[in-house]
């Protein structure tokens, strides 16, 4: 039985955790109309991967990529906090973000070359490399997923208040600035975790697509988040399972499954609406 293979177990576990947690932050980002923020932070995280790689080889570590994920976490958080500062100050945020993002990916490519990494290594981060997950990766994912679930769901009322109506939230005395930073940090952590499964280029898709699908089915914020988590988990596990039998790229397949699900659900939703309208 294929499920007894430890690698398959690791892949499915990491996939499930990432699929379930990515839409949590995705819901807040969509709420704030910053759906593409994940994309940009992913680019910055790539520079972190490369910096970690460089540090690892400079320190002469046996596994040169041991510091890649810690580097990505640090860079992603830094990038997310900078984006949040730009957003809250409303100062040329658009161009500022573009510079940050392209700077991130270009720096990443240069550094990874300098650290002796190959294009293959780089591709692993750009498109995901779930088929190489180790138990260390699994435990790291479990820890970060627990953090995202605990904070992202535990503080959902406050985070909703701040992303829904910041001015009112301020009037109630909620620590708006701090909560905005919490969203930014959660986004950064989510992106670094999801990078392993779908890669930097598709990381945003895993955060946003399940939310887009969930939105078609409910009018409640809480339920949108819950349904999105279920959808995210389902498409990730389904995608990884399919790649066990067919030689397909898992990250891309997961995203294509998500897009197909979105089209199917929105077709059903509009069919139902037009029926309701005719009545």
């Amino acid at each position: 039985m294929i499920l007894t293979d430890p690698l398959v177990q690791r892949m499915l576990l990491v996939g499930l955790l990432v699929g379930v947690t990515a839409p949590i932050v995705g819901t807040y980002l969509v709420q704030r109309r910053m759906a593409l923020m994940g994309d940009g932070i992913g680019h910055v995280a790539l520079a972190g991967v490369a910096a970690g790689w460089l540090a690892g080889s400079a320190a002469g570590l046996a596994e040169r990529d041991a510091l890649a994920i810690p580097g990505a976490v640090i860079f992603a958080i830094g990038g997310a906090v900078i984006v949040e500062r730009m957003r809250s100050h409303g100062s040329a945020a658009d161009v500022g973000m573009a510079i940050l993002f392209y700077g991130g990916i270009a720096t990443g490519v240069l550094l990874i070359g300098a650290a002796g990494g190959s294009n293959a290594n780089l591709l692993g981060y750009l498109f995901g490399s779930i088929s190489t997950v180790s138990w260390t990766d699994v435990w790291l994912t479990v820890a970060l997923a627990a953090l995202i679930i605990g904070v992202g769901i535990g503080l959902r009322r406050s985070l909703f208040a701040v992303t829904h109506d910041q001015e009112f939230a301020r009037s109630t005395g909620l620590p708006v600035g701090m909560l905005n930073i919490v969203v930014a940090i959660l986004a950064a952590v989510t992106i670094t975790v999801a990078m392993r499964v779908v890669g930097v280029l598709l990381v945003s898709a895993l955060m946003i697509l399940p939310v887009a699908i969930a939105q078609l089915t409910t009018h409640s914020f809480n339920r949108t988040m819950l349904i999105a988590m279920a959808v995210g988990g389902a498409i990730t596990v389904a995608g990884i399972s399919i790649t066990l039998y067919y030689d397909l790229q898992p990250g891309a397949l997961i995203v294509v499954l998500g897009v197909a699900a979105y089209i199917a659900v929105s077709a059903m939703a509009s069919l139902r609406r037009s029926r309701g309208a005719r009545r």
Binding site: V30, R157, S158, F160, F168, T172, H219, S220, T224
Partner: peptide, 20 residues
């Protein structure tokens, strides 16, 4: 960006400094 129902919006009125 994400829909919210009326009850969810009103619940946010019960939050405040030190009441997250």
């Amino acid at each position: 960006g994400v829909a919210a129902d009326a009850r969810e919006v009103v619940v946010s009125g019960l939050l405040g400094r030190g009441r997250l």
